[in-house]
Design a protein around this nucleic acid. Structure first.
Lengths: 334, 334
DNA sequence: TTGTACGCGTTATCAT
DNA sequence: ATGATAACGCGTACAA
């Protein structure tokens, strides 16, 4: 074992001064002579002292940590936005605590409690569903609208989302314009605001085009994985072999579906056309390239941080709901 | 604003007892009457009290948090192993603080300091390169051997890695057995133990097969992205148009390379054969399926947690270096 | 069974 | 410019 945790007291003793002075030097508060400062720094270096953040946060009643809640870190969309947020927060001197829930509602609760117990000064809640308590610290919701699952929330919360309705609409429009008459969709959790809005826009587009829309042509999967996309596609084509277009509400699902169609020798886009959502990097790489709805991931992350900072610093609480535009990226599946 | 943070003192007052009793009830220590326990719990519920982890950890000198350091959360290999570790730690009552460094050395240092300042009880260091200080708390290194970059470390550290030499060897063997005579490789950071070992095994296989190996046929990329894989492949083929096999030390790079070859109309595997490393889910989905070296991601994560727990609890420090077996997954690129 | 009082490592206030 | 000391919220030894 090395030496036990060295504290300001140790530094003070060694530097022949008091703890108050050491603290002042460290935080560059108050005044002190150049000479003692030198001495203090020297001892700090010598003992490799690091201030105990626990004690510090306890004392000042706030930490310099921000919590990020994310539903599925293995999905590139979420890991990408998480990374953006973390990088941006860092520029402003904040450390980031990433909590992955794996879409587990109970776990989210535990994680929220941990973050609160840890006295983080803010929370960025990506894919913010399934929280029951209203948070009393600065919080920015990103991607999913929490109102469905958090009854306490009225409109007094900040939300950064993309235009999901428009996204769904663009997807539907692309399919019908390319000739689809019997389109289906694959969604994830129907309770999520993102999913509902995307479907809403999708249905509107089909309706406008006078395309037949079979409500039972929607399939909901258990989790967002390639395999689930594969299975969902199989289910759809088994039920309605004449399906000529599928809208997947996540690129990961779409790519799984693409795989199924290729294995079955079903030609894309001639026989079946596909549109995804998110525009993750794979979508460009896969063959044929996946036509999809691009989400402005970076902008969402940056805006979230910007809002959180002004929330925390200026205390500004506008409770804005920002809706960022999306656009269609046309590739080989339509 | 809601009520300010409620503490044990508040609970004690309201329950008509002392702080000591409240604390005992919460932690189920010592003895107390069933009756007072009831009363205390009731008040706790009523005020929605949550213990301040900062204060608690400060007092008991240890937290129930574990830090995870990971170099690139957007890479499925790392996010997958991170998720496994987190899930497993949770089962044992530990919360997890994920720190993504984006392969930034300076950032890693900052994050380590934060974790230490946060008094985490342990650290799982995935892809553990670029740390200068020796950690004085239970630490398990996963994937990368830290000795190259952490001079202080002799052999007194725990490491969980896969058999990288064997992996490289299997890759080289596969290529030569399928007829490659002029193979190249694409690596990431040549200083990393994983990379060096993979290359070592690869070269050995080529040598055994009597295949020509051009040292300058290795390309090192700046970051592990699809784009970098694409560029590296272009570079290789421009330099040596007769290259007939490429070993990518990460699936992400390989898939980027695959894309390049398809765009150039170079037939796979007839003209050029490819082998990747990691076996991420994309590798199975892509067309043609990527032949790659499978890393036992789950086992690595589980073992890391197991070791960390015995390190922390039993104080058992065997400083073992575990090397888990890998195997080749043959798909369409060879 | 329960309460009092101290200490964990910091920072901030008030003296000096 | 510097030092003594209270306070942050909690756990626990000791006393009752």
């Amino acid at each position: 074992m090395e030496k036990q945790t060295v504290s300001v007291k140790d530094i003070a003793r060694e530097a022949g001064t008091s703890v108050a002075t050491v603290s002042r030097v460290i935080n560059q508060n108050g005044r002190f002579s150049k000479e003692t400062e030198k001495r203090v720094w020297a001892v700090i270096k010598k003992y490799n002292y690091e201030t105990n953040q626990l004690a510090r946060s306890l004392r000042v009643k706030r930490s310099t940590n921000i919590g990020i809640l994310v539903p599925d870190i293995t999905n590139e969309f979420f890991s990408g936005i998480t990374w953006t947020v973390q990088r941006e927060l860092m520029k402003h001197g904040y450390m980031t605590v990433i909590c992955n829930s794996g879409e587990d509602r109970d776990l989210v609760q535990k994680q929220v409690r941990m973050l609160l117990g840890q006295k983080v000064s803010g929370i960025i809640y990506i894919g913010g569903a399934a929280i029951t308590d209203k948070l009393n610290i600065p919080t920015i919701y990103v991607d999913r609208d929490p109102r469905n699952t958090t009854p306490d929330l009225e409109n007094d919360f900040e939300l950064i989302e993309c235009d999901n309705i428009q996204g769904g609409y663009l997807a539907g429009k692309e399919l019908t314009e390319k000739g689809c008459r019997r389109a289906a969709y694959v969604c994830f959790n129907e309770a999520l605001s993102t999913i509902r809005k995307r479907r809403q826009g999708f249905e509107k587009a089909l309706e406008e085009a006078g395309a037949e829309f079979l409500p039972e042509n929607g399939v909901s999967v258990e989790s967002v994985t390639l395999r689930e996309g594969w299975l969902a596609t199989e289910k759809i084509l088994r039920r309605h072999p004449d399906t000529d277009g599928i809208f997947y509400m996540s690129d990961v699902l779409a790519i799984g579906g693409l795989k199924y169609l290729r294995q079955r020798g079903i030609s894309i886009p001639e026989k079946v056309k596909l549109v995804g959502f998110d525009d993750i990097s794979l979508s460009e790489i896969i063959e044929p390239g996946l036509t999809t709805i691009h989400q402005p991931l970076e902008e969402m992350g940056n805006l979230a941080v910007e809002r959180l900072l002004s929330f925390m610093n200026d205390g500004e609480i506008a409770f804005q709901h920002e809706r960022l535009p999306v656009y269609l990226v046309r590739r080989g599946t339509t």
